[in-house]
Amino acid sequence: MALPEGATKPMEIQQLNLNTVILQLDDDFGRTSASVISHINALLLEHFGQRIINTVPAYRSLLIEFSLQHHAMAASTAELEQQVRAALSHFQADTAERRIVEIPVYYHPSVGDDLEQIMESKNISLAQLIELHTRIQYQVQAVGFIPGFAYLGNLEPALQVSRLARPRATVAKGSIAIAEQQTAVYPRATPGGWNIIGRTPIDVFHITAEGEIAHAFELGDTVQFRSISEADFFALGGRLGQSGQNDRYSQRDESLKP
């Protein structure tokens, strides 16, 4: 697949400030958007090298911040458009490389505060809920909110619920959450408004003392949830209560931040 049928103008590039632009794909790309954006992102990083400081791929857009040291915005924008068109013409949905990330989840009311309420409102059993959540593979559509938080889609319509009317002050680290068409893993304890249905004992995001980043989700990755028993949850380091997981890494008091 190169361009969707009838897509005459596949994207728009808008300048946001002195050295930042955003590229937006046409709606016609539908569910392949994240893969296309991920593909364009990789090619642009390679082509522009040090001229690009940062990129933020999300859903169907790509924010690109250029280096001020190499500043020649008008030239970059023209070059950018040319590169994106080239990237689009090469894109093959089937051959796009995908990393598969498996997340073990303990689905239980003791770690899923909203589980019983959802089962009741949807009139389904716990086994049915687990089946609905684990039977499909999700795609990382965006990463943000806090480091390592991935927006995964799309949920089965039978499992879709709206966000909580009142967000919680604290959602435990490792919580598995759902809201509207999406599901996610909370990489650390934080306030949050999504519905909590379980918890993973594994760390989905941490930076080691050596500066390595473990388990970070990236746009276009495929995510598979797998149901585990209580015994496995504890064996893998899971914890009940607000602590979420064994705290192997020191947490600092975030309230002290400016």
Binding site: V56, P57, Y59, S61, E65, A142, V143, G144, F145, I146
Partner: peptide
């Protein structure tokens, strides 16, 4: 749809009060 946020972006949430986003801003919104 959420998208990347540029340095200095002025976003206006539903309460109508603008926020200027700086160095440690969240990456998408």
């Amino acid at each position: 749809t959420s998208e990347g946020i540029a340095y200095g972006s002025v976003q206006v949430p539903s309460n109508g009060q603008p926020i200027v986003l700086l160095n440690d801003r969240q990456t998408i919104g």
